[in-house]
């Protein structure tokens, strides 16, 4: 199989901030509903949608909704080198940054290393109301308290697609067979997913477009999640803030 580099281009002009991706992600990956005391800083949202405003007031004020997940850094991947027990690795065949919760000690060093805050710690034991465990996705193992988890581009779906290709004696995975849950869930089709290494793929072409950008590109970590927008103020969010804006968060 040839080397792939799975990535996505998210059209921020098409995101309505509905959050379907976030819920679909949680359902697919057997993420439990929030513990009673969980907050937006202790919850588990491998994909979360962040509303960001342009800082203006009055009718000029606008917001953009930014779906944030693991950016699948390809170079100097910050979380990989820091893990003391090799619970994180970059899959050389797919470029996917994988987290092995079974290997994780829960030291949270990777979380301090991640500039995108895309890693989540299981502060509580996962709990579902009685009987609801029947609805857990059989493709994904549940995680225990005290380990870190994050987006792995729906790894179980990749495995299923690879199995299917192998069963049909095909060398390559059919792109239609491997679609992460968030991409599938987006009602406006704002997320384009595919193999960035394939120059002809729609996602590779979209990533090369002048409106495409990546967050904190200068860190040199070569993220594989791209965003695109026609609005210059949205594209400016790629860079770290130069003036501390009080009004960045919504509300």
């Amino acid at each position: 199989m040839k080397k792939r580099r799975y990535g996505m281009v998210i059209d921020l002009d098409r995101c309505t901030g509905c959050g379907a991706c976030s819920v679909a992600c949680a359902a697919e990956n057997n993420v439990p509903p929030a513990a009673p005391r969980a907050t937006e800083r202790t919850g588990i949202t491998p994909l979360r949608v962040q509303p960001v405003s342009n800082g203006a007031s009055g009718p000029a004020r606008r917001e953009v909704f930014i779906p944030l997940m693991c950016m699948q850094c390809g170079e100097h991947t910050p979380c990989v080198s820091v893990c003391p027990q090799q619970a994180v690795e970059v899959d050389s065949a797919t470029g996917i940054v994988t987290q092995m919760p079974q290997r994780c000690l829960g030291c949270r060093y990777c979380m301090t290393a991640c500039p995108y805050h895309a890693r989540y710690f299981n502060w509580w034991d996962p709990e579902w109301p009685a009987g609801m465990e029947k609805t857990l996705n059989p493709g994904v193992a549940t995680r225990m308290r005290g380990v870190v988890e994050k987006c792995n581009l729906c790894h179980s779906r990749l495995h299923a697609a690879e199995d299917k290709a192998a069963a049909a004696n095909q060398r390559e995975v059919n792109p239609a067979d491997y679609v992460p849950a968030c991409v599938e869930a987006c009602p406006t089709g704002a997320i384009l997913f595919g193999d960035l290494a394939d120059e002809t793929s729609a996602v590779a072409r979209a990533a090369r477009a002048p409106q495409a950008f990546r967050l904190l590109e200068k860190l040199g970590t070569e993220p594989k999640v791209y965003y695109r927008s026609n609005r210059p103020w949205v594209r400016a969010l790629a860079e770290p803030r130069t003036v501390p804006a009080k009004e960045v968060q919504r509300g």
Binding site: C83, P84, Q85, Q86, R103, L105, M144
Partner: peptide, 16 residues
Amino acid sequence: DVGQPLRAWFTFWHPN
């Protein structure tokens, strides 16, 4: 401080 103290020995067994 670590989430899974019982796995502390993993660092010695699978060191990065």
